[in-house]
Every structure is written in C-alpha cells, then in structure tokens.
C-alpha cells in the first residue's frame, strides 16, 4: 500500500514545492513509482518546478469532478519514468477539495495505479487546501527555514497534524513527522545570526531528516524546470539526495553545516 506523505510548512516561500519536486524525483530515481500532487488550487506551480507546465491538459479538480480520468491528468516525467505529477487547477474554487473527493483519488492512486509513494505538496496557510493535503497523510515533511516566523508556523502545523488529520481523528498511530530545514546559511549560524539546526530541532521537537543549504542552484534549477536534486553537483541537490536516502532508512551524516572556507583576513575583517 502506498505511503502518503505531505510536504507542509504553514508559512509560504520556505521551499515546499522545491522539496516536493526533489523528494518525488529522488524516490523515482531510486526505482519507486511516485506521484506528486499539487494541492495549491488556483495557484499551481509544481508543474513549473517539474518542468511539465506545457503538458498540463487536465488537473486534480477535473478528476475530482469526474471531468477527466486520473490517467488523463497524470503527467509522466520525461527524465524519470517512475515519476508522475498531478497538477492543481488554475481556477479558484476552494470548496472543490472535499474529504470524500480527495480520499477517492488517493485510493485509486494506491489501489489501482499501484503507486508506492504519494507526495502531497501543500499550499501555505491553514485553509482548506492545506488541511486536505495533510488529512490522509501517513508521514509529514515539515519544511522550516531557521527564521522566527517559519518556526512558529511549523509548530502550528505540527499541532494540526496531531489533531486534525485522519490518523488523529480515527485514533490511529500518529503521523510520523520529519523536520527539513531549508535555506540554511552555515556562515550566519556560526556568526550567531541564524538559529542552528539544534536550535530549531530543540524548539519543534521532531527528528531532522535533512538540512538544505541556501544555494544558487535552487533558483537556477527552477528557472529551467529541473528538480534541484537532479543537479547532482550542487550542494542543495546533494543534501536532498541524502534526505531521500534517510527517508528510505539509510544512514547519512548531515553535510554542508560548516562554513565555506574563508581566508583569515576576510574572516577577521569582514566581507
């Protein structure tokens, strides 16, 4: 039975879609049949990050409304044949996501299409889209920047995962939550200007599955529609790769937590 994993954060702009795309691509790269679903109804963007925006014909909402079959709406990745994207609609109808409708589609992806991993890319906020993205999940990747507003919103989302999900309501085993810290600046952490991995972990009290350093390659990859994990030379790509391995049970030490080397003069006198 497929595992359903929500990628969520509360706050916007912290890297949920970047993470969903790379996480999905990483799982597919390792041979697992994976689908990434964009839950941001009205503001779809996963298609751009995946590089499949020109191939969107039908979307998630069409499938829920019975206007298209799931197989017509799923977009198979051109690089990885185990990777699929289910885009969100661009029309704004927030009431279309119902527990029943979303449940029906997830069930079909699990039972009939035999996906191994279903990744739900949550929209920001705590409205309907976000609550539906997390409702059916078995595990959660909580994406957090080491920044005060993002940590607070992540804590709020952890509260929702613990109280408002199907697992909470039906009194099943709780959702397994993982902390993914993104946009990490080791230099600023060392200078005391940014909370460290330990700080954030200590506040949110969930295990860390990865730390993605701030990297120019994330913007470059999104510019060309490539999940950054496929840029194997970039630090962000390597950090995402480690995260996927850890998710699959491998042990990988955290990398890129130390400052890039600077000459002693630059370190002492700034710049």
């Amino acid at each position: 039975m497929a595992k359903i994993i929500v990628v969520t954060s509360g706050k916007g702009g912290v890297g949920k879609t970047t993470t969903s795309a790379s996480f999905g691509a990483g799982l597919a790269q390792r041979g697992h049949k994976t689908v990434v679903i964009d839950f941001d109804i009205g503001l779809r963007n996963l298609d751009l990050i995946m590089g499949c925006e020109r191939r969107v014909v039908y979307d998630f909402v069409n499938v829920i409304n019975g206007e298209a079959k799931l197989s017509q709406a799923l977009i198979r990745d051109k690089r990885l044949d185990q990777l699929y994207t289910l885009p969100a609609s661009q029309t704004r109808d927030k009431d279309v996501l119902t527990e029943e409708g979303v449940g029906r589609i997830l069930h079909e992806l699990q039972q009939e299409m035999r996906f191994e991993y279903i990744i739900c890319d949550s929209p920001a906020g705590i409205e309907k889209g976000a609550s539906m993205a997390l409702y059916y999940s078995d595990e959660a990747i909580v994406v957090t920047n080491p920044e005060i507003a993002s940590v607070r919103d992540s804590d709020r989302i952890l509260g929702l995962l613990a109280a408002k999900s199907r697992r909470a309501i039906e009194d099943l085993e709780p959702i397994k939550c993982h902390l993914l810290i993104t946009r990490y600046h080791p230099d600023r952490v060392i200078a005391g200007e940014m909370m460290s991995v330990e700080d954030v972990k200590g506040i949110l009290c969930i295990p860390v599955i990865g730390v993605i350093p701030e990297s120019e390659s994330v913007l470059n990859a999104s510019n060309i529609g490539l999940p950054v994990i496929l840029d194997e030379r970039s630090q962000a790509g390597m950090a995402y790769s480690d995260m996927v391995d850890r998710f699959l049970g491998e042990s990988r030490p955290l990398r890129f937590l130390n400052s890039e080397r600077k000459g002693i003069l630059r370190r002492w006198f700034g710049g």
Binding site: G192, S196, D199
Partner: peptide, 13 residues
Amino acid sequence: RQRTAEVARERLQ
C-alpha cells in the same frame, strides 16, 4: 552586531 539567533530562540520558546 548582536548575536540575534539567541534572541530569536528565546522569543520562540
């Protein structure tokens, strides 16, 4: 400059 990360951590707690 202040070591602001500590302030952030305390405020959050």
